[in-house]
Every structure is written in C-alpha cells, then in structure tokens.
C-alpha cells in the first residue's frame, strides 16, 4: 500500500486518476481503517486528503449557505454553534456516528462516500438539500447528496473523482430540521432505521418539507410522498398518520442481524413522526431554542 499526502485537490485527483489498483481517500479513516484491518479492502494507493489547504474549514458564505470541508470531523461540527443553530438535524446525524473517539475523526464526506445505506449523516444532508462539489480528471461538477450513493458500498463518483466540499443551503426563516435513528442500545450501533425531516412554516402551517430515510433501502432515500403528507398541514394527528404511512410505504428494507423488514418498516413511520415533531417545534419557535 502506497500512502500519499497530496497538498492540493489537483494532486490528489492526479494520483487517483493514475492509480491502477484499488484507491481509497483517507480523511477520518474510521471506515477505511476498519476495512483494512478486517482484510475487506487493502488499497494499493491511500490518498490522505488532510494536507490539502482548507479541508478542515467550516465556512458560512455571505448568502448564509455553508461549505464544510471534507476533513472536518464530527466533533468540529458539534463545536460550531452557528452551524448547529442553522442545521441542528444535519449536525445530529453526524454526531450520532460512533463514539466520542470516532467523532474526533469521522467526516460527513467519509460517511457519504462509504456508501452504507445506514449512514447516519446522509439523511440529514438529503433533507437539508445539500450538494457536494466534485472535482476529477474531467473537471468539476456539483451533485445532490441523494444522487451520490447508488447502492451498498457504491457511489456515483467516477474513477479519479473526489468530493471537495459539502454545500448546505442557507437556512432561511422559519425553518427547522431534525434527525432520529433507531438503535437497540443508546450508542455505538449502526442505524436500524434513520429519518431526517427538514421543513419550513408560515405561521403554524408547513409550507416546505423534505423527508429522508436511511437503512430501509439499498441507499438513503428522499421520500416525496412523506413530505407531501405534511405540507399544508399544522402537523395534526391526520398529517402525522399520513406521514407515517408514507414513510413506511417507502421502505424496501432487508432482514438482517440488525433488524427485520417488518420492524424497519414500522419504525420508519414512528421515527418520521417523532423527527417531524422536533423539526416542527424548531421551525415554529425558530431562534427561540
């Protein structure tokens, strides 16, 4: 295994594009090292991106949107009050990954590009409408987060391409988001079901919503029907029931050691309701939290 420490994205892409064997980018390393250790993947070329300037920065742009560097650790996001104030759900999703120790290393992009359907940081980003900036041998592009994972362990990134930043839209007024996951313990588990809800209100009526589910399909997915179920409502009992039904209907999970199809489908509805209530409370008393 060759270990590279490129000083620019161009260099990193160059190494990746020229590589003939298995290539992995190393930021937090919390997935790469586990796979290395378990002999699942031993890269021929390991490209440590942490020496590229700016990758550890959390930046709020003048329009209120956010750019999060690809080597920003979860712990650094939870230490950024302005980001938490804007996007508590996005930060919650990241913060739920692993232990305090893992938080010291794990990154949003790593969580996304590992391609796990159960990745905790991904539904929150999808619900927020986040995109990623990508650079590669054929130039740059911007892709919606929900279009990155294409299946368990697979992404839409082409050979030589790498993510250079996560872009989260400006929060705007009267908005709120939340992420909840179900695990059997209180910590340290992979999500059995994850659900993020992002919404905006006018008075007490929901005007915009995005609902994303994790761990219930081959990839995290945006569930338009679930959003439709609550848009135009005050999140009353009927809307919540419709939300739960839409969330459960969107599930296409598997039976495995972490949960059954039946359980995941049911709990997706439960979590959608609970996450929606939190997001709604955050939106309706925005700034008051």
């Amino acid at each position: 295994m060759r270990y590279h420490t490129p000083a620019s994205f161009d260099d990193a892409v160059g190494i990746a594009a020229d590589a003939t064997g298995v290539t992995r980018f190393l930021a937090g390393g919390t997935d790469v090292l586990v796979q290395l250790r378990a002999d699942i993947v031993t890269p021929d070329d390991l490209i440590d991106v942490k020496h590229i300037p700016g990758v550890r920065d959390i930046t709020q742009n003048s329009d209120g949107s956010w750019a999060i560097g690809i080597a920003v650790a979860g712990a650094e996001m939870t230490e950024c009050p302005a980001l938490i104030a804007d996007w508590p759900g996005v930060v919650e999703g990241m913060d739920l990954i692993g232990s305090t120790q893992v938080q010291g290393r794990a990154t949003l992009v790593g969580n996304l590009c590992n391609g796990s359907p159960a990745a905790d940081a991904v539904p929150g980003m999808i619900a927020a409408g986040a995109t990623v900036s990508i650079t590669g041998p054929d130039g740059n592009r911007t892709v919606a987060v929900e279009d990155i994972p294409t299946g368990p362990g697979r992404t839409a990134l082409n050979k030589g391409e790498m993510v250079t930043a996560v872009n989260i839209p400006a929060r705007g007024d009267n908005g709120g988001d939340a992420y909840l996951r179900f695990i059997p313990r209180t910590e340290m588990d992979i999500a059995v079901v994850g659900c993020a809800v992002n919404l905006r209100v006018d008075g007490d009526v929901i005007t915009e919503a995005r609902v994303a589910l994790g761990a219930v399909a081959p990839t995290a997915r945006l569930v338009a029907d679930a959003a439709t179920a609550i848009i135009g409502t005050t999140l009353d009992e009927g809307a919540l029931a419709a939300l739960a039904a839409a969330a459960s209907a969107a599930c296409n999970p598997i039976d495995d050691k972490r949960g059954t199809i039946e359980f995941r489908t049911h709990v997706a509805g439960v979590l959608a309701q609970r996450a929606a209530k939190i997001a709604y409370a955050r939106a309706t008393c925005a700034g008051g939290e």
Binding site: A38, P184, R185, T186, E187, M188, D189, I190, D256, K257, R258
Partner: peptide, 16 residues
C-alpha cells in the same frame, strides 16, 4: 457468524 465485531455484538455501554 454474522456479528463478529463489538459494533454488532452489543454489550451494554455506559449510557445503556
């Protein structure tokens, strides 16, 4: 064996 790591062999953690 499907769960041969502590991630999936779930012993109680402090917060449990």
């Amino acid at each position: 064996l499907q769960n041969d790591v502590f991630l999936d062999y779930r012993i109680p953690v402090a917060s449990d």
